[in-house]
């Protein structure tokens, strides 16, 4: 709420009033897919030091901010604490969180889809930059103007906007975050492979009740891990903490600890042999 109010609305509006570029300091490429569009870059470059700072800030977030913060806090620093889509999902979308599909099949689709969007956004951006530097609109065999048009209409407006919020009552409140957001995909890759964040399970205390899986908005079958005594390290987890809250037996805990042993052994405490 704070981030959305200040960074997405207040600061950009103040900037505009001051005849400065509209800039949301917390929005990051590739979610902010137009960050590298020629019009945006030109606008920033035309605004002297402040513009350059904004450009530098945006790039720094991409290459430094994301990896470093995900390493220390997990993806939640962005998806749950900062992001506007996330904020909407956790407030307006909260009554629909149990509707996310927990099946293995949905997980497979999710991985294909979200990473495809990530690739699409990277290719589209590369094409746009190519056009920016060279002036040629044909990037290999596609028209970069056409490409950004398609991305903007289908991913930016259609997927993120229409499906992303309109389908809350059908596919849960994080449908965009889970299946589409390219930034979430990027954050998730780092969370999966290089982070101190994990959800720990508490020994042998799980009773497989299913509250955790039911209420996971990202469609993670948390119980699958908990009932086998395994830590949960999933790229999609936005660290909202609901699984830990709804667990009636104190089994789940979001923890940030040494990377060693993060995946944890598959172990249920109980038998001594």
């Amino acid at each position: 709420m704070f981030f959305q109010t200040c960074f997405a609305f207040l600061i950009p509006e103040i900037l505009v009033r001051l005849n400065k570029p509209y800039f949301d300091f917390k929005n990051i490429w590739p979610l902010d897919y137009s960050f590298f569009f020629d019009s945006r870059i030109n606008e920033l470059l035309a605004n002297g030091t402040l513009g350059l700072f904004m450009l530098g800030w945006g790039i720094a977030l991409i290459i430094l901010g994301v990896p470093v913060l995900v390493y220390f806090f997990g993806k939640r620093w962005y998806c749950s604490w900062v992001c506007g889509c996330g904020g909407l999902a956790e407030t307006l979308g909260d009554p629909y969180r149990q509707l996310s599909n927990k099946s293995l099949k949905a997980w497979k689709i999710e991985r294909w889809m979200i990473h495809s969007v990530l690739v699409f956004s990277v290719v589209m951006t590369a094409a746009v930059l190519y056009t920016y530097w060279t002036g040629a609109s044909w990037f290999f065999f596609v028209d970069s103007y056409k490409l950004r048009e398609v991305y903007g209409a289908w991913i930016g407006a259609g997927f993120a906007g229409v499906v992303g919020t309109g389908f809350y009552p059908v596919m849960g409140n994080r449908v965009w975050c889970r299946f589409g957001c390219p930034l979430a995909a990027y954050l998730g890759l780092i969370q999966r492979f290089k982070s101190r964040f994990r959800i720990t399970t508490n020994g042998g205390q799980c009773i497989s009740c299913g509250n955790c899986s039911t209420y996971c908005e990202m469609g993670i079958d948390v119980r699958w891990y908990a009932q086998r005594g395994q830590n949960i390290v999933r790229s999609s987890c936005v660290g909202c903490g609901i699984c830990s809250s709804v667990c009636p037996r104190g089994v789940l805990n979001l923890e940030v600890k040494n990377e060693k042993g993060r995946l944890g052994k598959e172990e249920l405490i109980g038998n001594t042999n």
Binding site: G204, R249, G250, G270, N271, T272
Partner: peptide, 19 residues
């Protein structure tokens, strides 16, 4: 052989979790 380790259990009494 069945050799369980130390006893453990848990429950929840309305709002109070017990271990």
């Amino acid at each position: 052989p069945y050799e369980p380790g130390p006893w453990f259990n848990s429950a929840k009494f309305f709002d109070i979790e017990y271990q």
